[in-house]
Amino acid sequence: MKIEILGTGCAKCNKTKKIVEKALLEIGVDAEIVKVEDFDRIISYGVMITPAVVIDGEVKIAGRVPGVDDVKKWIT
């Protein structure tokens, strides 16, 4: 599983990464986490506001920091 955190390095993007890591740890799932800061790559997903989370190529959320439970639902 590949989880991409889309954002330009702001506080909310960093918080999103921590939440994703926490969710993975709590349910014991291993996944590749990639932080994507390249603007061209971000808009290639159609994402226009960040932070955003993309799991295996599917945009799960944009413009908001997800909750740990949200992330757990997406990856289980």
Partner: peptide, 23 residues
Amino acid sequence: GTMMCTVGIGGHSPGIIKSAEGC
């Protein structure tokens, strides 16, 4: 605000729809 793609909503572009939902 952020200008967004109305036609992307009509075209069911997931990233654009999620961006709108995040507003």
